[in-house]
Every structure is written in C-alpha cells, then in structure tokens.
Simulated scan of single mutants.
Amino acid sequence: MTEEIDMAEEKKINPMLKLALDMGPIIAFFVAYLRLRDEVFTINGTEYSGFILVTAGFIPLLALTTFILYRLTGTVSKMQIMTLVLVVFFGGLTIWFNDERFFKMKPTMIYALFAAVLGVGLLQGRSYLQIVMSEVLPMKHEGWMILTRRVTGFFVFLALLNEVIWRTMSTDAWVNFKTFGLTAGVFVFFMLQSRLFQTYGIETADGEEG
C-alpha cells in the first residue's frame, strides 16, 4: 500500500484530466444511449437494441480509460479495479444473453460489494476507507469509523434504490439515474459530512486541517 501511495505522489496528473478519465465513459454512455435508444441493429441474424450496443461500447472504453489512468499515475485503486471487473462481467452477460437487465443490476452489485467490504472492516474494528484515503483526508480514527459506518449505510441505500428504479421505471429513467442521480447523490452525501471532517480532522504540518 505504501508503494502505491508513493508512486501516486510521484505521478500526479492534472485534476481535470483525471476527472475526464473518471467521468468520460459515463458521459459517453449517456450521449450514445440518447442517440441510439430507439434504434435496433441486426447482427448475424440477431436483433440488438441500442442499449445493448451502447453497453458493448462502454466496456472497452472503461477498460481503456482505466489503463490510461494507470499509465499516467502508476496506480489504480482497488475500487476502480472491482468496478471494471463487474462492468466486464455484467456487461458481458448483457451482450451474451441480449438482455439489458444484467447491466442494470451492475450498480446494485457494485454498491452491495463495497458495503460488504466496508462492513467486514467495521466488524474487525477497522476502517478500510482510512487505509485508502488517509493521505488525502487526515482524520482521527474515531472520525474514520463514523464515516465508514455512514458510507456503508449509504452504499446499501444506493444498491436498494437502484433495484427499485430499474425494476419499476423505464430504461430512460434508469440511465438518467445512473448518469446524474448517482453522481449527484455521492457529491451531496460527502458535502453533508463537512461537520464530521471539521470535528475529527487532523491539522497537517502546513497548518491546514484535513
């Protein structure tokens, strides 16, 4: 872990470039879906909806941006690796069975898996968030434990919410939720933790609080 952190410090990249690599595939998926959602494509005698074709394009695009991020920074987080693995798995099932429901399940599995991992750490009296984020967000252990419990509950909520939306609403509604709802939800959640950060933040060497 120390080697990964040191390498990441040596190979910092422009924050806007990192944001583009992180969000680019999601935005591309949304734009492509809007253009192809009403189209039907026949390949080798089998009809595929625009959603299936967009999913097929999303998989290599996410793999490419993850690889580029690794080449530029020298490291990729375990969360990004797990996300890529689940995208390949559920995206592959979606294409193989020509059934969009598999890809819609992906966020459920991602958030459920993250919640389970964090939950195991909590049972052990540990915060896995602290392990991977303490360098950029110095905070007392008690604060990390509180944040980890909140994040675990938040991930469970997102997993359940995704299930409700894809099972009860249209594909358009789910795509909008996946593209904008999840991103906005995560942003708002961490904004609401500002008081926690202030209460348990550790003052760094330059006099700033983490």
Rank of each mutant, 00 (worst) to 15 (best):
V88M: 14
E100R: 11
G125R: 13
H141V: 14
L86D: 06
M82V: 12
F187W: 15
V76W: 00
L36I: 01
W144D: 04
E142F: 03
A63L: 11
R35Q: 08
Y70Q: 05
F102H: 12
G201V: 10
M169F: 13
L34M: 14
M145N: 01
W174L: 07
K140N: 11
M79S: 06
E47R: 01
G74P: 07
K18G: 14
L61F: 13
T66P: 02
D99F: 02
S77V: 01
A32I: 06
L62G: 01
V136Y: 05
V117I: 15
G121D: 10
V151T: 14
T55A: 07
T94P: 12
M145A: 03
L17P: 01
F103A: 06
T65P: 02
R126H: 15
K178S: 07
S170L: 06
A8Y: 00
R37A: 04
V40G: 00
E4H: 12
I59P: 04
W174M: 12
M79F: 09
P60S: 05
T204Y: 00
V31S: 06
L182H: 05
Q80L: 04
T171L: 12
A116Y: 10
F58W: 01
D172I: 05
L160C: 13
A8R: 04
M7V: 10
A116S: 11
G57R: 03
I202D: 08
A112K: 04
